[in-house]
Structure formats: structure tokens, C-alpha cells
Design a protein around this nucleic acid. Sequence first.
DNA 1: CGGGGGCGTGAGAACGCTCTCACGGCCGTG
DNA 2: CACGGCCGTGAGAGCGTTCTCACGCCCCCG
Lengths: 342, 342
Amino acid sequence: MTDTTPRAAVPTLDEVAVLAGVSRATVSRVVNDSPRVSPEAREAVRSAIAELRYVPNRMARSLVTRRTDTIALVLNEPNTQVFSDPFFASIVRGVSATLADTDLNLVLLTAQDEREQQKIGRYARLGHVDGVILMSVHSDDPLPDILAEAGVPLVMCGRPFDDRAVAFVDADNRGGAEVATAHLIATGHRRIATITGPLDMIAGVDRLAGHRAALAAAGLRTFPELEAEGDFTEAGGARAMESLLGRDPELDAVFVASDPMAVGALSALRRAGRRVPDDVAVVGFDDAAVATRCDPPLTTIAQPLADMTPLLTELLLRQIEGVGEAVESRVCRTSLVRRASA
Amino acid sequence: MTDTTPRAAVPTLDEVAVLAGVSRATVSRVVNDSPRVSPEAREAVRSAIAELRYVPNRMARSLVTRRTDTIALVLNEPNTQVFSDPFFASIVRGVSATLADTDLNLVLLTAQDEREQQKIGRYARLGHVDGVILMSVHSDDPLPDILAEAGVPLVMCGRPFDDRAVAFVDADNRGGAEVATAHLIATGHRRIATITGPLDMIAGVDRLAGHRAALAAAGLRTFPELEAEGDFTEAGGARAMESLLGRDPELDAVFVASDPMAVGALSALRRAGRRVPDDVAVVGFDDAAVATRCDPPLTTIAQPLADMTPLLTELLLRQIEGVGEAVESRVCRTSLVRRASA
DNA sequence: CGGGGGCGTGAGAACGCTCTCACGGCCGTG
DNA sequence: CACGGCCGTGAGAGCGTTCTCACGCCCCCG
């Protein structure tokens, strides 16, 4: 009804230039905030732009600048469940917020299988994005290679499996896990089990290594029956806890490699009639929001997400700008947050 | 190490043409699968493309075709919690899977505040996407207007608040809720509460309307103290259930407008010492995976997501192709899934 | 044996922008 | 008063595609 022109004829730079009585170049300068424009010309262009409701054509611009001003956050996860992990939500939220001040756009790409991974590789290679933040990398993942080969600036969230020269930001998973289990030892527990993350993910591997290191440091042995592999989901945590309880009913503590899994473990323990922390102490990992809400509130290892997400984008932007040839990486400190579960 | 050329000089159509001994136009025809190319020329071009590892420049192509071959799934949600709702995960997964067979790319855009919404509007207007699927629309949402004005093909997931001419795909929320509450009535319950969705979302409004309609049809009155507004999260469901129990300890059933909220309600009921379904019967909505896992398994209303997601993309693609001027919408049937909670 | 109709091909314009370069006009300095 | 320098501006060349035409060629039919 309000639309008088049936097909909204999109105005071009030329039309703005004609209306403003200047050249195309001057309009371009105004649009791109170049300082070398007289106030009068600038004003004339401004009002012409407003009148025509001009919006620059991004494709034309990208064609010449070779930049798209969009970066991709790639979620590489076959397991749909994990998609709803609060850790991801936090990263997405954080990166999105960091980028909000810039004129960069953020797109989320998800890959659930190899076909979709290839598609993402193609998408990146086609120059749709200036850079990629890659999350949730598994050991057999082709995506790091695909993206590296595509020559796209890349920052991984979590260190890579091999020692490849790629930028990454990671929490000190090993150190955090070590602190977690050391805390359980210090509070008098001796039969300490662990629910690991997926062992095809570096966070899963590192947190298990930290747990074992803490046991070793205290002169305690590691027992296979006290280690159960989870999948970072609440349901997986519950299953793992049940399995653990079946294998060693006497266990008195458990380090769980993520808070959602710990919540699952908590309900499995409750169903089994164990009190937390009196019968079984529980320490989680992440310090997700759910850790404060569950019953009892979870003692857990906090990842400094507030530091990590800006770092993630910062390292990527630096790569995109091309300053500093060497890829740079960061490992962020974790800390123990004591609540009621241990 | 393996990279001999420091800066991977991206080959262009011209270079392929020269190597293949044909013109640019012929290469373009081969790339775009035009039939009017001789087998020999096609083969020459093919091998030249392979040798040069040629990839078409998407920006240049988009500039002339005015298509980007990417569509956006916009998640418009201030509440980070809701981001991890299994319903969203299913939609994302479904749309992504539907698009996997096409050469269309899917990007996810999230908006948590008005600034980010404006950014998405700009992104769309700039021609980054061929079309938009919009999810999680709230009553005061500027995004539908922004996108409509931007002239981008648009399909909404869920009907709009006003009767605007926009394509949408929705479940029969009202009908489903009516069936849910009717089921509670049929099984002998009389003091039936409801935990609604956010009432600034159409799904929340419609499900409440269905609930009330079922009560009215059975000659039962609606009481304000038997209605509590939730936010589609588990924590919100638990809070609402507690509030309901405080307001009317005698209630014998509750229709909960989403499964995550129902799970929260279940734990609130457990904490309050009520047995489900003996003391209080519970019916959820969504038939999310969690409905089968919780204790007791949830009787719920299934949305036909398997139908809805292909429909969503289909309607959008049809708009993009420009066939069929009139916007088309669909409302999908829901069904009662009986488990143990009611 | 001549003419019409494909079919495969190439030349070149167009898409909308950025950016280099050159050119006047003004100022300040010697 | 003359000259160098800077500042604002415009002309025009690209960026890498697609797509419209026009042009030979060969084949088939009369």
C-alpha cells in the first residue's frame, strides 16, 4: 500500500552523484568517510543519499576491495545435542557482542557431516568471508585443513590436535582439571572418578590429562573403571555417572568435564540415593549459568569467557589486517569456583 | 612449506580461457553448465580449470546476477537461554539438511538487541542474502518491518502478530493446545493450570488461547491464578510451576506450553512432593527429545518439524524464484503423543 | 547446387563500486 | 610579485563475472 514503486529500483552511486551535483568519486569519498571532502560537498551528498535512500552495493564494493566485512563462526558438530551447549551460546554471544561495535558482520555456519563441511570450505574459498573462527574441532576433522588450504584467516577456539601453525585461543583445560581434582583430593576424597568429554576433542583429552596428573601428583593411581567418557551433554553425563556407579559403588568424588554433564551426573546420583557432596563430591567445568541453578550449586572450574571471546575476534582481525605475520595464540587461565557440590 | 607461491594468485576466467584456448564466454558457459558447448571445448576448459584450481569469484558473479546463493536464518532472541531451545536446534538442523542438496548456503544470524537487529537489516539490504527465514518473532519486533522494507524475500517461522501479507509456516498451536487441555479434561482433571510461553510471542498467545478454548468447551472457567507466564526455558518453567503451586495448591493438572518448561515444571513438582501424573498430570508441547528422557516421560503435543522445515525453505525458494506472486503460508497439524505424564 | 536454420563461439558491454592520477585554485613563503 | 605545495575534485581505468548479439560453420532440405 505504502509502496508506490512496484520494484524498488535501487539507486546507484551515479544517481546520488547527479543529484548532489558532484562526481561519483566524491560520493564514494563521503560514503567511506574520507577526510578530503569539503563540508558543502559532504552535506550535499548526505542529503542526496538520504533522499534516494541509497545503500552501497556490497558486491560491487567487495569486488574491488576484496573484502566482505563478514566473518564466520563455524560450529563443527555432528551431534545436534551439543548445539545447545551453553558454552557455545556464550561464545556466540560474546563474539557477536564484540563485533557489534565494528561494521563487521557475523555469520554462523554449522556442519553436521562431511558434506556440510565441504560446503563450508567452498563457501569460505569463494570469498564469502574475510575470516573464520572455528569451534568444536574433532580429531579426525578435515575442516582445519580445508580452511587452511582455502587460505582464509583462521582462529580456532581450542588448540589443534597436532602442532600445526594455526592461531587459537584456548582455556587452560589441563591446568583447570588439575586444580579441580586437586581440590577433591585436598578435601579428603580418595576414590575419585571422572566423566570425561569426548576424547576426540582436545578439551576432553586435556581435561582428562589434568585429572590424571592431579591424581599422580598426590600419589594416587588411575583406574580405568573410574573413568567414563561423556559427550558434553546432560544426558550423556547422567549415563556416564550411572555406569561409574555400577563399576565402583564406593567412589566418593567425581570430576566432570563440563557443567551440563555434571548436572546430568547430579540427577543420576540423586536417583541412586547418593547425597552431594556428603556421599559423593562433584566438581564441574565451565562455570555455566546452570551451575548456580542446580541443586546443589556446582563447584566448578571457570573459563574466562569474557577474556576469550574478545581475544578470538582480536586475533582474527589482526590476521585479516595482515599485521604481524606470525600466527599468535593464547591460553587463558581458569579458576576454581567453590559452591556447594564439593 | 608446501606453498610455493607466497600469495596464492587466484586465477580468473580469462586465464582459464587462455589456457584452454577458448574465449571467456565459453569458460563461463562450462562453469554454469550451459548445454551449448562442444564436448571438446568443455573438456579443454575442464582440465584448464583443474590445472589452475580455478574457483569463480562469487562477488563478481553476484554483481551481475544479483544473487548470492545464500539464505539467512535469523534468530531474533534477546534471551540467550532460549538460544539453546531444542526447537531452534531442530529447525536449524532441518533447514540446513534441506539445503544441503542444493547449492545454496545457509547462514545463521542472531540478534540479541535492537542494535543487532538493525545490523541484520542492513546486512540483508546490502544484498548479502537472497532470502530470510525469520524465527522467534516478538510482538514489538521491528525486524519483520525492516526486512519487508528491505524487499528481501521472507518467510516467518510462526505466524505474524498482525495480518500482514507475509509468508509463514506455523504449527497449529491453538489446535494443539486445545487437544492437550482437552486430554487433561477427558482424563478427569478439573483444576487445570497452564504455564504459557512468553505472551509477546505468537506461539505463547495461541497456545494459551487453545487452552482456554478447551476449558470453555468443557464448560470450565478460566482463573487468572491458574495461568503463569513462562519464557520457554526450563528454569522459567520451574519458577512458573512454583508460583502456580503457591497460588493454588489443589491444582490437579497443568498444560505447559513447551517441553523444556515442562521439564522444569516436573522438577518443581518433584521438589514440592507431588507425584506425576497421580497428583498432577502434565502435558507439554513440542515433542522434543527431552520429552522421552525425563521422568516420567512427557505426554506432549508433537509439531511436525519434519514437514515444517522443508516447507519453510520451499516457500522461501519459491519467493526467490519469483514464481507465484501471492505469498503463500502453511499451518501444520499437531498431534498428541501420549506418554506417562498425563 | 543454393539457401535457410540451427549450433558453437567470441567480442564487448554491463554490473556498481574504489582508487589512482591529474588538474585547477588557494594559501603561504621567499 | 612569483612560485611551490596542498587541498578538493573529477575523469577514467579497473575488479571478474554474465549475458546479449552477431558471426561463421555445417547440415539439411528443396
